[in-house]
Amino acid sequence: MRILLGVAGLLGFGALLELAPRVGLVSDRYAPPTSTILVTLAQRTGESRFWLAVADTLRTWLLGLLIAVALGVAVGIALGTVPVVRRATASTVEFLRPIPSVALIPLVVVLYGSTVTSTLVLVVYAAFWQVLVQVMHGVADVDPVARDTARTYGLGRLARVRYLVWPTALPYVVTGVRLAATVALILTITGELVIGSPGLGQEIATARTSGAVPAMYALTVVTGLLGVLANVATRAAERRVLHWHPSLRAEVAA
């Protein structure tokens, strides 16, 4: 029932966008009807250029996400496990985090030009903080009894990280990855749009300058679909990685 209602909502929205330009409510120069957008989209999916752009976007996104997660987890565990270091770095993290990543756009363009590297730097910068903050919270969340038990049994530093800190922090890490995936996708497409590195964003910029309005809408729909895909994929990964965790076990039982 819920699914049916949801589909009805999507169809209704599509019908609204189809009808509004048809009856002259808005000019179809600005807002082409849904059918035109879908036809354009279908044409585009027949071109190899479209799929190359999708592949470029996906590659930049995944690579940026991977680097950001690796860095975020490593730095987060290193900073989070030593209380003195954590106290000393907290203010710096709080200060650097709200710096909007787009402030770096002019900088990376001057340094690297309109290349994938420029976009990657933006993506990594933006996604890194999401992971780092979550990891630092997670590492601080270790159960004191478990920590004392580990110490009593003489677990070494590495063993403590492996068997104590990592399982505690994992749910936070996964949350961080989920947040970072969304942010990384936004920054990937923004970078392509503004900087002009190859990918879907650049295709949208090209469509804009050549006045191909339906193509612009069609590509925007594709970016939205990619975003939904990212959400679904990270949620599924979360369930797989954390199937042992009480929060998810409770969900399954209920």
């Binding site: 029932m1 819920r2 209602l5 949801g6 589909v7 009805a8 909502g9 999507l10 209704g12 929205f13 996708l185 936004i186 497409i189 923004t190 749009l193 503004v194 964003g201 949208i204 910029a205 469509a207 804009r208 612009m216 809408y217 590509l219 925007t220 970016t223 939205g224 679909l225 990619l226 975003g227 939904v228 990212a230 959400n231």
Partner: peptide, 22 residues
């Protein structure tokens, strides 16, 4: 809520800067 949920999920997933050209 049930009618709008998938639609909102989709609209939210569109990276906002993409809307600038539109």
């Amino acid at each position: 809520a049930a009618v709008t949920e998938p639609l909102l999920e989709f609209l939210r997933a569109i990276p906002p800067p993409v809307l600038v050209p539109i």
